[in-house]
């Protein structure tokens, strides 16, 4: 198994317009609404086999919060909580 990299970042915010203005000004990002509450940044670990990674995480004590689901482009995502309750996220791309 290769060590995973962070590849994807979502920012969760209750103030979409404010966040868009802020990040557009600060770092030139454009925004897209994910429909999730916030505020927080979500980072996704890039894993080769997303479904298998979710199964491994669950058998190691993680709780599945959302997914695994496929988003446009065939990208698989899942949001989990580790045994201490810290949220983490995995993403697998069609490659």
């Amino acid at each position: 198994m290769r060590p995973a990299n962070f590849v994807w970042y979502d920012v969760m915010t209750p103030d979409m317009k404010g966040a868009e203005a802020f990040y557009t000004n600060v770092i030139g990002f454009s925004a897209k609404d994910s429909g999730m509450p916030g505020p927080m940044w979500t980072r996704y670990w890039d894993v080769d086999a997303g479904d298998a990674a979710v199964a491994r995480a669950k058998s190691s004590g993680a709780t599945l919060l959302n997914g695994p689901m496929q988003v446009p482009g065939g990208i698989g995502i899942a949001n989990l909580a580790d045994p201490q309750g810290a949220m983490f996220n995995v993403l697998s791309l069609v490659r």
Binding site: G50, D51, Q70, G74
Partner: peptide, 9 residues
């Protein structure tokens, strides 16, 4: 056309 998933899914 991009789609992915474990074999059984």
């Amino acid at each position: 056309y991009r789609t992915r998933g474990a074999l059984l899914s």
